[in-house]
Design a protein around this nucleic acid. Structure first.
Lengths: 206, 206
DNA sequence: CATTCAACATACAGTCTGTATGTAAGCGCA
DNA sequence: TGCGCTTACATACAGACTGTATGTTGAATG
């Protein structure tokens, strides 16, 4: 019964401060960019001092990593929520694709996850994060399709990475004003092109 | 007859200094990264002062843009040189792909063109540069294939962008130690999957 | 209840970026 | 060929930012 401004356990304080910092950083990193956002600005937005920031995070980059981690998890959650399991392998992939593109439409998300993320943390670190969250469902969907022989057998890791890259670029292009329908059509064609024997997928998506 | 250290025309001085700066910046940007490289370090490597840098370039970012421009042109040149015209549409695409992956293998090039470039200059600016250099041949190859009916008709811009994204990610993955053969196979499968009527392309690449 | 430790706030040192100012050499021109 | 203007820098400076070191207050603990 102590939620008044005083009396808080250390654990609660830590949790709250970290959350505030991540929230503030996320806001500024999406509005501007990682490089253009300074720690003084972040702590002002969070209502703490730089001392708190450097107490909880090793450096600015570690705070950025925490933001990325959270954002990647949020995207993965949105996708998982949007695709109920009872679907054919191909339809599940398509539903996931649309969910991904929609999720990445949140303002600033593409820059955060697709531009600043790889540049600041490196592709390897981003791959690790992606594989833990977003790409997992994609990879599993692909493996399932291959096992169901709805898709030519290919190295799963490479296929996942390259398709994910295409999705990413599509999200960026759409956010930049590209014709969303064009990119969707191309993505579907790339996926359908991997069918082994020209299996007649359900009616062309117009 | 005035190549001795003194007596140089203003135009020559400008050209030489700009080239020195770009060369030094390129070296450091590939060895480390854009963010980790300071202008004092760059000018020291170039043998000039920061005054010269800010005389020739609006800011650090403009110098970076000049480096990117040059590097993109170099990659495009390597590709164009490696693929003689007398090839079928599909084979030309494959030759171009291999040339691209090989060209991107130069140390630091992936970070420069695929990580720092988009983050610092933005995807739009990078697209503009890519379309002026590297992607042009890819796009033309795709359009040619579509016109020759060796490929399903798809929006050219979107298809070019997404395939380019896949190539880029493959280059990054290979540089990071991924199995080059896996990525090559997947890339070829993606391309071949776009054939309209299951046209039997010439013998599988091993 | 005394001590230890966690969670900060404040102060500081070093570095970087961009700009303003100064200077010497090139260049057009009478 | 001398004179004014401009280019191509070098130097000096102001502001901002990052990370660290130090101090302080309240919670946890035996």
């Amino acid at each position: 019964m102590q939620q008044e401004s005083g009396r808080r356990s250390n654990r609660d304080r830590t949790e709250a401060t970290r959350a505030d910092l991540i929230r503030a950083a996320r806001k500024l990193f999406t509005e501007k960019s990682y490089a253009e956002t300074g720690t003084p600005e972040i702590v002002a937005e969070a209502g703490v001092t730089r001392g708190a920031l450097y107490h909880h995070f090793a450096d600015k980059q570690a705070l950025f990593a925490a933001v990325i981690e959270q954002e990647a998890a949020a995207v993965a959650a949105e996708i998982e929520q949007a695709s109920p399991p009872p679907l054919s392998a191909r339809d599940a992939l398509i539903a996931g694709s649309d969910a991904y593109l929609k999720a990445m439409h949140a303002p600033g998300r593409t820059r955060l996850l697709l531009l600043d993320g790889p540049a600041v943390l490196g592709r390897a670190a981003m791959d690790e994060i992606d594989n833990r969250h977003g790409n997992r469902s994609l990879r599993e969907g692909l493996v399932a399709a291959m096992r169901a022989q709805a898709m030519t057998r290919l190295p799963a890791e490479a296929l996942t990475a390259l398709l994910a890259a295409a999705f990413d670029r599509a999200a960026l292009a759409i956010e930049a004003g590209g014709a969303a329908e064009d990119y969707r059509v191309v993505l579907m064609s790339l996926i359908d092109g991997l069918a082994p024997a020209r299996a007649p997928g359900p009616a062309r998506t117009r």
